[in-house]
Design a protein around this nucleic acid. Sequence first.
DNA 1: TTCTTAATTAGTAAATATTCCTATTTATCG
DNA 2: CGATAAATAGGAATATTTACTAATTAAGAA
Lengths: 168, 168
Amino acid sequence: MKRTPGEISKMTERFEGAIRRAGIKLTPQRIAIYREVARTADHPDIETVFRNVRRKLPSVSLDTVYRTLGLFADLGLVMTVRPLGYRLRFDANTSPHHHFVCTRCGATLDFEYREFDTLRIPAAASALGRVESRHVEFRGLCASCAPGPARSKGKSAKRTNGTRSHRP
Amino acid sequence: MKRTPGEISKMTERFEGAIRRAGIKLTPQRIAIYREVARTADHPDIETVFRNVRRKLPSVSLDTVYRTLGLFADLGLVMTVRPLGYRLRFDANTSPHHHFVCTRCGATLDFEYREFDTLRIPAAASALGRVESRHVEFRGLCASCAPGPARSKGKSAKRTNGTRSHRP
DNA sequence: TTCTTAATTAGTAAATATTCCTATTTATCG
DNA sequence: CGATAAATAGGAATATTTACTAATTAAGAA
């Protein structure tokens, strides 16, 4: 799920422009955190971003990661994704896309859905308020959880539907 | 957003049948929790369910509410909804519907979207796994947050996009 | 009905996740 | 270079969710 160096620098460039336009400081922490999120397309959670950024900047605090990703979300530089019950995740991909969430392992996968993007907003929804963004989430078993591995007890059986196991 | 007594008893009836078919116990706690979630359509969070159920059963524990709603979700009796950053919420409405989430006040409103329900699943998504459920989320400002009230500083300004304010 | 038993719960402790507070550092601009 | 408002680190404080265990109880058998 790695992005190419070319993609990353293009994204970073846009990022720096956005920060400047917003009139806020371009700090090494912000750059490192953005680059970490932009590096791959696999929806890292806060903990992961924190851990990886620390390898470059050993002194960054967890608070800074929360604060910074929240800022990026407000600026529209990253999308927030809720893999339903697991940790809050961020995605540097801000082009219109949607998510497939595996209900077993929690994998969150992007896909495009042009037919949906161009679908009209139903009156039932516009009556509720001004729709500013739209997002589809499919839930199901991902390819690696679905058919073959009838085994796999513990590890891959993380709950990801926002609940936990009702103890037997 | 109240449901009528008629709706509620019909739902409760189905609920009791489902519990029996699942071969698990029909306890007063489970009944009270289900009825509380079925009572309205406004997506209560755990805390709210807990508080209201306690008025009927003063001894229920928070753990029981978590456990029980998780069980219901597994049985398909409630849907889990992530209003993006706020508390996990549950919805007893299991008929196909979608959500409008207010990015200011966190209100989570249902709407139907037949055109989407009948849209074909794109190949890009079915390649990722077997799609078992599909859900649309619109984000924006709800009717009461949108135009008029230019005031309202603190209270109604809860962040609901999974982030928090970057302190100035 | 009473008995038996495995499931369920209450209550509390513990683990996670997120946010707040403040002294210190630093990017930006003149 | 300064000045200064913004941003950060570090740790404390909250909030949320889960785990543990003794006691209770629903459901089925007798």
